[in-house]
């Protein structure tokens, strides 16, 4: 297999000190290739969001290294991930209500991200923002609104447009559908799947929803209390889980 696009090697994140210290993430190894969709599943407190934050450079690892396109870009010795690398990995969060500035019009929120990463004039950035929003199914009218006028699903699509502004190679989606309505979920997931298959975007889905992971990913990592307890082909793992915790997660899906 070709070298991974983004890779976390032996990532450990320790919070607290002395007797209080605990590893939110413990020697975790994850990788994603170009055009691939992988899942990280686990419950709250399993460390999946902390691991994601390390991969995008929002959290410094206590030990371990982040590699991007064959280069080591982030370790405990780095104050932050180098700017020349940061645009390549973008993240969208669970809560589309708190992740957009309420006092910025929708197009401004996206144009801001465009201007951070591309040297464009204001009118050019606005045009680019509107195009990104269009591709996400947000109309010009909606782009003129403040975020509160949009539904949860629409806001989450705005977050995706914003994340796509620098033309990233990897998108990390942290529980992207858990706070939006079901009919809006399908729209968002179709969009993300198109980005992966048509544009070759690598996507890491972080979710407690095994149904979503089964549908969207080809490989999966199962996390429990900071450890990756099982990893491999998604379909294989969901059909024949080896770890008891994976089995418990599968058995807990409503309707089974």
């Amino acid at each position: 297999m070709a070298a991974a696009l983004l890779e976390g090697k032996d990532i450990t994140v320790t919070f607290g000190r002395g007797a209080e210290a605990f590893d939110a993430v413990h020697v975790a190894n994850v990788a994603v290739h170009a055009g691939e969709a992988v899942g990280i599943v686990g419950e709250s407190g399993s460390g999946k969001t902390t691991l994601a934050r390390v991969l995008v450079g929002l959290q410094r690892p206590t030990a371990g290294e982040v590699w991007l396109e064959g280069e080591r870009i982030f370790t405990r010795r780095h104050q932050q991930m180098p700017r020349s690398e940061r645009w390549k990995t973008q993240i969208i969060f669970q809560d589309p209500y708190s992740s957009l500035n309420p006092r910025m019009r929708v197009w401004q929120a996206v144009a801001e991200a465009v201007q951070v990463w591309q040297s464009l004039s204001k009118p050019e950035a606005k045009l680019e923002a509107l195009q990104l929003l269009h591709a996400m199914g947000i109309s010009d009218d909606q782009a003129q609104q403040f975020p509160k006028a949009l539904s949860g699903g629409q806001r989450q699509r705005v977050s995706v447009a914003r994340a796509l502004a620098p033309g990233p190679k990897v998108l990390i989606a942290d529980e992207p559908t858990s706070s939006i309505d079901q009919s809006a979920q399908a729209q968002l997931l179709n969009l993300l799947r198109q980005l992966q298959t048509a544009r070759g975007l690598a996507i890491i889905f972080i979710s407690h929803d095994l149904g979503l992971v089964r549908y969207l990913t080809s490989r999966v990592y199962v996390m429990q209390k900071g450890d990756i307890v099982e990893t491999g082909d998604t379909r294989l793992i969901l059909e024949q889980p080896e770890h008891s915790y994976t089995r418990l997660l599968i058995d807990s899906i409503p309707g089974r």
Binding site: A186, L189, N190, G211, Y215, I253
Partner: peptide, 26 residues
């Protein structure tokens, strides 16, 4: 029917979900 078919846990991987067009009437 739409609520049912748009559910991700019944969808076939590699195919589009049957999404309900538009937004819920508010």
């Amino acid at each position: 029917r739409a609520l049912r078919v748009s559910r991700v846990d019944r969808a076939v991987p590699g195919t589009d979900l049957e999404a309900i067009p538009g937004d819920a009437a508010s």
